[in-house]
């Protein structure tokens, strides 16, 4: 004759027994993955020694606050301007042809070299020198480039 019962007696585990159970489970896990664990421990020690771990821990602990500060900073107009500028600039760069850029950079570098030489010689430039310079094929090419560049910029400004 069995009467209905609802009482369930759970084996009362002492604190140390509970602890042992947990430790046992972890040990099993460790034993199953020795290589990964060893490597992880090494990595953790390196991180600790270098102080990175401490900094990371602090940052993670304060993650909500940090995120708020970062987002709060980022949402200010100067920062959004930077981001927008950076993205616009990046967009512009994306449109340039690399060959042209290479050519231009070469020219600029050579130009800088010559300019520096001129600067060092301390030579004064008069009107006549300027007129003469125009007929120098290298300078003429550069000025032509400059004028056409200005024209292109002007057109670009009109479009937007």
């Amino acid at each position: 004759m069995a009467s209905p019962i609802t009482k369930i007696v759970q084996p009362t585990l002492s604190e140390s027994e509970k602890q042992n159970q947990t430790v046992e489970a972890i040990l099993q896990l460790l034993a199953k993955n020795p290589e990964g664990i060893q490597e992880t421990i090494k990595l953790l020690q390196e991180l600790h020694d270098s102080g990175i771990l401490g900094a990371l821990t602090a940052a993670v602990e304060a993650k909500e606050e940090l995120a708020k500060i970062v987002v709060g900073q980022m949402v200010r107009p100067p920062v959004t301007n930077i981001i927008n500028n950076a993205m616009a600039a990046a967009g512009g760069l994306a449109e340039l042809e690399p060959e042209m850029t290479q050519k231009l950079m070469k020219g600029v570098s050579k130009g800088l070299q010559k300019a520096d030489e001129g600067l060092r010689s301390g030579q004064k430039v008069g009107i006549m020198d300027l007129m003469k310079a125009l007929s120098d094929p290298d300078i003429n090419r550069a000025i032509g480039f400059g004028i056409n560049l200005l024209k292109g910029v002007g057109e670009g400004l009109k479009e937007s």
């Binding site: 995120a67 987002v71 949402v75 959004t80």
Partner: peptide, 18 residues
């Protein structure tokens, strides 16, 4: 995320307008 972090983030994305 809580709304005090979420909303500024949405604002950020809107202002940046990529």
């Amino acid at each position: 995320m809580e709304s005090d972090l979420l909303n500024p983030m949405i604002d950020l994305i809107k202002k940046v307008e990529p």
